[in-house]
Design a protein around this nucleic acid. Structure first.
Lengths: 188, 188
DNA sequence: ATTTTCATTTGACCTATATCAAAAAGTGAA
DNA sequence: TTCACTTTTTGATATAGGTCAAATGAAAAT
C-alpha cells in the first residue's frame, strides 16, 4: 500500500488536495538497524512505512529493552506523544529491516492540520485507531497466560511474529525470552 | 471544571461557536450504580463528567469484571471505539457515584465534526491524550510488581484510589483483590 | 437491634513464570 | 573453513502472586 491509498482509505481527499499534501512527505531509504529517534530527542517526523519494518522501544531502569510496538508496511510510525506535543521522546524508534519510508515534519504536519479540516479528521481517525489497538493489546496481556499473549501476537502481527528476534517479541508481550522460547517449542 | 472550560483548554472556541456547540450537550443527573451502556449496545453518547465518577469494564470469559478505566470529574467518558465507529460496545459503562453528566449524541457530534474544523481538532487532541494515558498504563503494568502497579494507581488517580471498591482497582491493575489487600496492609 | 448481604482480610497452599547458568544453534567476518 | 559473536534453547531452582476457603468487618435492610 502506498501513502496515497493510505490517506484516502481514511478520508476522501480530492486530487488537488493530494497534490498539495503529498509533496510534504519526503521519501527516505533507511537501512536495517538504523535508529530514527533516541530517547530524549524531540521526534520531528511522522513516518509512513511503504516497505519494511520498524519498532519503538524503551529502556527499563535495568537497561533492558522493552519493545512497545511493531509497525509493518502500510502503517505509520512515530513517537506519537513526542511528535504531536514536540516534547522529548520517551522511546527509541528503529528500523528492523531495510525500509522505504515517507516522512513528514511536524512543521509541515502543523501547516496541513491548520489548512485542511480533512487533515485534522485524518489524524483524528488515525489516533482513534491507535487507541483501539493499544487497548486491545492491554486486554490481551492483562490476566492472560504467556501462551495466550503469544496467540495475540500471532493474530495481531501474523507476518511479523517470525521476522524479528525472539527477545523483542518477548518484551513486547511482557515475558522473558526463555518463556517465549518454551512456548514456541510447544507450538502446534 | 465545567464543560466550557474543558473545551477551551483544548481549543480556543469563540463565543459564537460555544453558543452553537454547548446546546448539543444535554445535562443528565445520574444515580450511583446506574449502567449507561452494556456490552453489545452501540454507545450513542459521549459523556462529560461535571461531577461524579464513572468506570468502564468488561467481563472475562469466566464472568469476572475487569475494570478498564476510571473517569473522574472534568473528564470525558465513552465506549470510545463503539461511539466513533457506531459499532457494538465491548465494554460496560457505569456511574459509581451520583453524577452530573453532559452528554452529546453521536449524531450531534458528527454534525459538529463536519461543521467545525476546530471540533475535529478537539477530538483529535482528546484522542491523542487518551492514547498517551493508556500507553502510560501499559508501561506501568508490564514488567512491574503488584506493588509498583499500585503506586502507579496512586499517582495517576490519587483521588479515586480510595473511593472505589478494592476489587475494581485490583482488576484495573491486573491483580487479584487478595493481592491488593495485602499490598495495602503494608502501605506506609 | 438483629439479620442479611456484600466487601475486605487473612491463611495455607500451588503454579506459572522469572532468574540464573550453561549448552547448542545460527550468523557473519576474515 | 574457522573463529568470534549473537541468539535461542534447555535445565534447575526460586518466588511473586494466584487460588481456594474461611473469618472478619461494614453496610443495608427488616
Amino acid at each position: 500500500m502506498n501513502i496515497t491509498d493510505f490517506l484516502i482509505t481514511f478520508v476522501p481527499f480530492s486530487h488537488d488536495e493530494l497534490n498539495d499534501i503529498l509533496p510534504c512527505f519526503e521519501k527516505e531509504n533507511v537501512q536495517k538497524n538504523q535508529v530514527l529517534i533516541k530517547e530524549g530527542q524531540v521526534c520531528n517526523k511522522l513516518y509512513f512505512i511503504e516497505q519494511g519494518l520498524g519498532r519503538s522501544y524503551y529502556l527499563k531502569e535495568d537497561g533492558k529493552e522493552v519493545t512497545q510496538w511493531f509497525s509493518g508496511a502500510g502503517k505509520f510510525m512515530a513517537s506519537v506523544d513526542s511528535y504531536f506535543n514536540q516534547s522529548p521522546s520517551l522511546y527509541y524508534l528503529e528500523v528492523l529491516e531495510d525500509s522505504v519510508l515517507y516522512s513528514i515534519s511536524y512543521e509541515n504536519m502543523d501547516l496541513l492540520l491548520v489548512k485542511y479540516h480533512k487533515m485534522e479528521k485524518f489524524i483524528r481517525l488515525l489516533s482513534l485507531e491507535m487507541f483501539t489497538k493499544i487497548i486491545y493489546k492491554l486486554n490481551a496481556i492483562q490476566f492472560h497466560t504467556a501462551r495466550e499473549r503469544y496467540d495475540y501476537m500471532i493474530s495481531e502481527f501474523p507476518n511479523i511474529a517470525h521476522r524479528v528476534p525472539l527477545s523483542q517479541i518477548a518484551s513486547f508481550l511482557g515475558m522473558t525470552q526463555e518463556t517465549l522460547s518454551r512456548i514456541r517449542r510447544n507450538e502446534v
